[in-house]
Computed example of a mutant assay.
Amino acid sequence: MADPADFVATATTELGGTSGTAGYGPPYNSTPDATQKLGPIDLQSLSGVRLPIDTANDFIIGPLQTLPNPPAAIDEWTKASDAQHAAWTTAYGDALSKAPDNDPAKVPPGDYGPVPALTGALLAMAQQGTLDPVLGAKGSFYNTDYKASILFLGDGSYFPGLADAQHLTGDQWGMMNETGNYPGQSWLWLFSALYQVEPFKSSPNADVLVVFSMVILTLLLTLVPFIPGLRSLARRIPVHRLIWRDYYKHR
Protein backbone atom coordinates (compact mmCIF):
# COMPACT_ATOMS: atom_id res chain seq x y z
CA MET A 1 0.00 0.00 0.00
CA ALA A 2 1.32 3.42 -1.00
CA ASP A 3 0.46 5.30 2.21
CA PRO A 4 -0.79 3.21 5.14
CA ALA A 5 -0.78 6.22 7.48
CA ASP A 6 -3.14 8.14 5.21
CA PHE A 7 -5.36 5.07 4.90
CA VAL A 8 -5.72 4.77 8.68
CA ALA A 9 -6.38 8.51 9.02
CA THR A 10 -9.05 8.29 6.31
CA ALA A 11 -10.67 5.24 7.93
CA THR A 12 -10.81 7.18 11.19
CA THR A 13 -12.74 10.03 9.56
CA GLU A 14 -15.11 7.52 7.96
CA LEU A 15 -15.78 6.01 11.37
CA GLY A 16 -16.31 9.41 12.93
CA GLY A 17 -18.54 10.70 10.15
CA THR A 18 -16.24 13.63 9.43
CA SER A 19 -14.99 12.65 5.97
CA GLY A 20 -15.94 14.40 2.76
CA THR A 21 -18.37 11.64 1.83
CA ALA A 22 -19.99 11.64 5.26
CA GLY A 23 -20.75 15.34 4.94
CA TYR A 24 -21.51 15.46 1.22
CA GLY A 25 -25.29 15.51 1.37
CA PRO A 26 -27.57 14.07 -1.35
CA PRO A 27 -27.47 11.63 -3.02
CA TYR A 28 -25.40 9.92 -0.29
CA ASN A 29 -26.82 11.32 2.94
CA SER A 30 -28.94 14.11 4.35
CA THR A 31 -26.22 16.16 6.04
CA PRO A 32 -27.70 19.59 6.92
CA ASP A 33 -26.46 22.61 4.93
CA ALA A 34 -24.27 20.45 2.70
CA THR A 35 -26.13 21.00 -0.55
CA GLN A 36 -25.42 23.41 -3.39
CA LYS A 37 -28.17 25.86 -4.19
CA LEU A 38 -29.12 28.19 -7.01
CA GLY A 39 -30.56 31.10 -5.08
CA PRO A 40 -33.40 29.67 -2.98
CA ILE A 41 -33.61 26.50 -5.09
CA ASP A 42 -31.93 23.49 -3.49
CA LEU A 43 -31.14 21.57 -6.66
CA GLN A 44 -28.98 18.95 -4.98
CA SER A 45 -31.82 17.84 -2.72
CA LEU A 46 -34.41 17.51 -5.47
CA SER A 47 -33.50 13.90 -6.21
CA GLY A 48 -33.21 12.98 -2.52
CA VAL A 49 -30.87 10.44 -0.96
CA ARG A 50 -30.90 7.82 -3.71
CA LEU A 51 -27.53 6.21 -2.95
CA PRO A 52 -27.45 6.11 0.85
CA ILE A 53 -24.02 5.71 2.38
CA ASP A 54 -23.26 5.40 6.08
CA THR A 55 -19.48 5.70 5.99
CA ALA A 56 -18.88 3.99 9.34
CA ASN A 57 -20.99 0.96 8.50
CA ASP A 58 -20.49 0.77 4.73
CA PHE A 59 -16.76 1.51 4.62
CA ILE A 60 -15.51 0.07 7.92
CA ILE A 61 -17.83 -2.11 10.00
CA GLY A 62 -19.56 -3.88 7.11
CA PRO A 63 -16.35 -4.97 5.36
CA LEU A 64 -14.82 -6.13 8.66
CA GLN A 65 -17.89 -8.25 9.37
CA THR A 66 -17.20 -10.26 6.21
CA LEU A 67 -13.93 -11.58 7.66
CA PRO A 68 -13.89 -15.22 8.80
CA ASN A 69 -12.98 -13.94 12.26
CA PRO A 70 -14.30 -10.39 12.63
CA PRO A 71 -12.41 -8.30 15.20
CA ALA A 72 -13.97 -8.20 18.67
CA ALA A 73 -13.68 -4.41 18.52
CA ILE A 74 -16.79 -4.36 16.31
CA ASP A 75 -18.96 -5.35 19.25
CA GLU A 76 -17.54 -2.58 21.42
CA TRP A 77 -18.14 -0.05 18.65
CA THR A 78 -21.72 -1.06 17.90
CA LYS A 79 -22.71 -0.93 21.57
CA ALA A 80 -21.33 2.58 22.11
CA SER A 81 -23.30 5.80 21.64
CA ASP A 82 -22.79 8.29 18.83
CA ALA A 83 -21.25 10.71 21.31
CA GLN A 84 -18.74 8.06 22.36
CA HIS A 85 -17.96 7.30 18.71
CA ALA A 86 -17.21 10.97 18.12
CA ALA A 87 -15.00 11.19 21.22
CA TRP A 88 -12.97 8.12 20.25
CA THR A 89 -12.45 9.09 16.61
CA THR A 90 -11.65 12.71 17.43
CA ALA A 91 -9.06 11.68 20.00
CA TYR A 92 -7.47 9.13 17.68
CA GLY A 93 -7.53 11.48 14.69
CA ASP A 94 -5.79 14.19 16.71
CA ALA A 95 -3.22 11.70 17.96
CA LEU A 96 -2.52 10.49 14.42
CA SER A 97 -1.97 14.03 13.18
CA LYS A 98 0.60 14.63 15.93
CA ALA A 99 2.42 11.30 15.63
CA PRO A 100 5.78 11.23 13.80
CA ASP A 101 5.05 10.71 10.09
CA ASN A 102 1.40 10.25 11.15
CA ASP A 103 2.36 6.65 11.79
CA PRO A 104 -0.33 4.72 13.72
CA ALA A 105 2.41 2.63 15.33
CA LYS A 106 3.84 5.80 16.91
CA VAL A 107 0.59 7.06 18.43
CA PRO A 108 0.89 7.34 22.23
CA PRO A 109 -1.58 5.46 24.44
CA GLY A 110 -4.92 7.16 24.91
CA ASP A 111 -8.66 6.72 25.18
CA TYR A 112 -9.30 5.69 21.59
CA GLY A 113 -11.68 2.83 22.29
CA PRO A 114 -11.84 0.24 19.50
CA VAL A 115 -10.82 2.71 16.78
CA PRO A 116 -7.16 1.60 16.45
CA ALA A 117 -8.21 -2.05 16.28
CA LEU A 118 -10.88 -1.38 13.67
CA THR A 119 -8.72 0.79 11.43
CA GLY A 120 -5.79 -1.61 11.82
CA ALA A 121 -7.94 -4.57 10.78
CA LEU A 122 -9.25 -2.62 7.79
CA LEU A 123 -5.69 -1.73 6.80
CA ALA A 124 -4.79 -5.43 6.90
CA MET A 125 -7.75 -6.19 4.63
CA ALA A 126 -6.62 -3.54 2.16
CA GLN A 127 -3.04 -4.81 2.16
CA GLN A 128 -4.27 -8.34 1.47
CA GLY A 129 -6.43 -7.14 -1.42
CA THR A 130 -9.71 -8.22 0.14
CA LEU A 131 -11.20 -4.81 0.95
CA ASP A 132 -11.90 -3.45 -2.52
CA PRO A 133 -14.05 -6.41 -3.66
CA VAL A 134 -16.08 -6.25 -0.44
CA LEU A 135 -16.68 -2.50 -0.67
CA GLY A 136 -18.34 -2.81 -4.05
CA ALA A 137 -19.80 -6.30 -4.07
CA LYS A 138 -22.84 -5.72 -1.83
CA GLY A 139 -23.59 -9.42 -1.92
CA SER A 140 -23.16 -9.77 -5.68
CA PHE A 141 -20.65 -12.07 -7.32
CA TYR A 142 -19.85 -9.61 -10.10
CA ASN A 143 -19.29 -5.94 -9.42
CA THR A 144 -19.31 -2.99 -11.78
CA ASP A 145 -20.06 -0.33 -9.15
CA TYR A 146 -16.84 1.13 -7.76
CA LYS A 147 -18.51 4.11 -6.14
CA ALA A 148 -17.62 3.12 -2.57
CA SER A 149 -13.96 2.51 -3.36
CA ILE A 150 -13.62 5.78 -5.25
CA LEU A 151 -15.31 7.78 -2.50
CA PHE A 152 -13.11 6.19 0.16
CA LEU A 153 -9.95 6.97 -1.81
CA GLY A 154 -11.13 10.51 -2.48
CA ASP A 155 -11.66 11.14 1.22
CA GLY A 156 -7.97 10.64 1.91
CA SER A 157 -5.12 12.99 1.08
CA TYR A 158 -2.82 10.65 -0.85
CA PHE A 159 -4.67 10.54 -4.17
CA PRO A 160 -5.77 14.19 -4.05
CA GLY A 161 -2.09 14.97 -3.49
CA LEU A 162 -1.18 13.05 -6.63
CA ALA A 163 -3.87 14.95 -8.54
CA ASP A 164 -2.49 18.24 -7.30
CA ALA A 165 1.01 17.27 -8.46
CA GLN A 166 -0.38 16.49 -11.92
CA HIS A 167 -2.34 19.79 -12.07
CA LEU A 168 -5.68 17.99 -12.12
CA THR A 169 -7.49 19.84 -9.34
CA GLY A 170 -10.23 22.37 -9.88
CA ASP A 171 -8.09 25.42 -9.12
CA GLN A 172 -5.44 24.24 -11.60
CA TRP A 173 -7.68 24.04 -14.68
CA GLY A 174 -7.78 20.32 -13.91
CA MET A 175 -10.96 19.69 -15.88
CA MET A 176 -9.09 20.20 -19.15
CA ASN A 177 -5.77 18.67 -18.14
CA GLU A 178 -4.51 15.12 -18.46
CA THR A 179 -2.00 13.04 -16.53
CA GLY A 180 1.54 13.29 -17.79
CA ASN A 181 2.60 15.32 -20.81
CA TYR A 182 -0.53 14.69 -22.84
CA PRO A 183 -3.19 17.05 -24.19
CA GLY A 184 -6.38 17.20 -22.20
CA GLN A 185 -9.97 18.07 -22.97
CA SER A 186 -9.42 21.50 -24.51
CA TRP A 187 -13.12 21.89 -25.29
CA LEU A 188 -13.74 22.22 -21.54
CA TRP A 189 -11.72 25.42 -21.28
CA LEU A 190 -14.75 27.59 -20.59
CA PHE A 191 -15.99 25.33 -17.79
CA SER A 192 -12.51 25.41 -16.25
CA ALA A 193 -12.14 29.16 -16.73
CA LEU A 194 -15.27 29.94 -14.72
CA TYR A 195 -13.90 28.05 -11.72
CA GLN A 196 -10.84 30.33 -11.70
CA VAL A 197 -12.73 33.63 -11.30
CA GLU A 198 -15.04 35.18 -8.75
CA PRO A 199 -17.78 34.75 -7.72
CA PHE A 200 -17.51 31.11 -8.75
CA LYS A 201 -14.04 30.53 -7.32
CA SER A 202 -14.97 31.03 -3.67
CA SER A 203 -18.65 30.12 -3.81
CA PRO A 204 -19.88 27.01 -1.96
CA ASN A 205 -22.37 26.66 -4.83
CA ALA A 206 -19.71 26.83 -7.54
CA ASP A 207 -20.74 23.68 -9.43
CA VAL A 208 -24.37 24.74 -9.72
CA LEU A 209 -23.45 28.30 -10.69
CA VAL A 210 -20.99 27.16 -13.35
CA VAL A 211 -23.46 24.71 -14.89
CA PHE A 212 -26.23 27.33 -14.86
CA SER A 213 -23.92 29.88 -16.49
CA MET A 214 -22.97 27.38 -19.18
CA VAL A 215 -26.65 26.66 -19.86
CA ILE A 216 -27.30 30.39 -20.33
CA LEU A 217 -24.28 30.80 -22.61
CA THR A 218 -25.28 27.75 -24.64
CA LEU A 219 -28.80 29.11 -25.07
CA LEU A 220 -27.39 32.45 -26.21
CA LEU A 221 -25.20 30.71 -28.76
CA THR A 222 -28.13 28.62 -29.98
CA LEU A 223 -30.37 31.68 -30.31
CA VAL A 224 -27.81 33.92 -32.05
CA PRO A 225 -29.65 33.69 -35.42
CA PHE A 226 -32.83 34.96 -33.76
CA ILE A 227 -31.46 37.83 -31.64
CA PRO A 228 -31.55 41.19 -33.46
CA GLY A 229 -28.26 43.04 -33.30
CA LEU A 230 -26.33 40.03 -32.09
CA ARG A 231 -26.96 38.15 -35.32
CA SER A 232 -25.59 41.11 -37.29
CA LEU A 233 -22.23 41.25 -35.52
CA ALA A 234 -20.54 39.16 -38.19
CA ARG A 235 -21.41 41.78 -40.82
CA ARG A 236 -20.50 44.74 -38.62
CA ILE A 237 -17.27 43.22 -37.33
CA PRO A 238 -16.05 41.22 -40.34
CA VAL A 239 -13.25 39.32 -38.65
CA HIS A 240 -14.04 36.37 -40.89
CA ARG A 241 -13.10 38.45 -43.94
CA LEU A 242 -9.67 39.04 -42.44
CA ILE A 243 -9.18 35.36 -41.77
CA TRP A 244 -10.40 34.36 -45.23
CA ARG A 245 -8.95 37.37 -47.02
CA ASP A 246 -7.52 35.29 -49.88
CA TYR A 247 -10.99 33.99 -50.65
CA TYR A 248 -12.69 37.39 -50.47
CA LYS A 249 -9.93 39.03 -52.55
CA HIS A 250 -11.26 37.29 -55.64
CA ARG A 251 -14.95 37.94 -55.03
Rank of each mutant, 00 (worst) to 15 (best):
Pro26Ile: 12
Leu15Tyr: 02
Ala99Trp: 09
Asp54Phe: 03
Ala5Ser: 13
Ile53Asn: 05
Asn69Leu: 07
Asn177Phe: 04
Pro26His: 10
Gln185Asp: 14
Asp145Ala: 02
Ser186Pro: 01
Leu223Met: 13
Glu198Ala: 11
Gln185Ala: 15
Phe191His: 13
Pro32Lys: 06
Lys249Val: 05
Pro114Arg: 11
Leu209Trp: 10
Asp101Ile: 09
Thr222Asn: 07
Tyr146Ile: 10
Phe191Ser: 10
Ser149Phe: 00
Ile243Arg: 06
Arg251Phe: 12
Ile243Tyr: 07
Met125Trp: 11
Ala105Pro: 01
Pro160Asp: 05
Gly136Pro: 02
Leu151Gly: 06
Asp82Cys: 00
Pro114Lys: 11
Ala124Lys: 15
Pro100Lys: 07
Pro204His: 04
Ala193Asp: 05
Tyr182Arg: 15
Gly110Tyr: 06
Ile41Gln: 05
Thr89Phe: 04
Gln65Cys: 00
Gly180Gln: 08
Glu76Asp: 07
Asp207Gln: 08
Thr21Asp: 02
Ala2Thr: 10
Leu96Tyr: 12
Phe59Cys: 03
Leu46Ser: 05
Glu76Pro: 01
Asp94His: 06
Ser19Leu: 06
Lys79Phe: 02
Leu96Ser: 08
Leu188Ile: 04
Ile237Leu: 15
Lys138Glu: 07
Leu223Asp: 01
Lys138Gly: 05
Asp164Leu: 11
Thr218Ile: 00
Ala11Val: 06
Ala34Val: 13
Gly20Ala: 11
Thr179Trp: 15
Asp3Arg: 07
Thr130Ser: 14
Gly25Pro: 06
Gln128Asp: 12
Gln65Glu: 13
Leu46Lys: 10
Val239Asp: 00
Pro27Val: 14
Pro183Ala: 05
Tyr182Glu: 11
Gly154Ile: 06
Tyr142Ser: 08
Glu198Cys: 02
Asp171Gly: 01
Trp189Pro: 01
Val115Arg: 03
Thr169Leu: 12
Ser97Thr: 12
Pro63Asn: 01
Pro100His: 03
Pro63Val: 00
Phe159Met: 12
Ala22Thr: 13
